[in-house]
Amino acid sequence: MTGIVALYIFMLAAFTGYEVIARVPVILHTPLMSGSNFVHGIVLVGAMVALGGAHTPLEKTIGCIGVLLAAGNAVGGYVVTERMLEMFKSSGARAAAAKRTH
């Protein structure tokens, strides 16, 4: 990937992020923040690559900490977002769910 291609990717991704969020209702702000927190958990693949290429004990130690932290970001972000979104139901969906259980 050349520098200029990377720059294009950066620009287009920035506009994508802005547009995807632009019309989000307030009620989803916290879940969405949590969801985007999960998405940057992709840092895990970078931490894996960094540790995979580490040689000295210092590099290995820092790489190991990186993988540990990144895995925490990805897994924790997923669990919390999933729990939050699980609670979002409209009154229609709630009534239907209640009917099923009765």
């Binding site: 991704a13 969020i21 927190n37 998405v39 992709i42």
Partner: peptide, 10 residues
Amino acid sequence: IIAGTVVGSA
């Protein structure tokens, strides 16, 4: 790059 930038701008 893509995931990080999307989260950065959002």
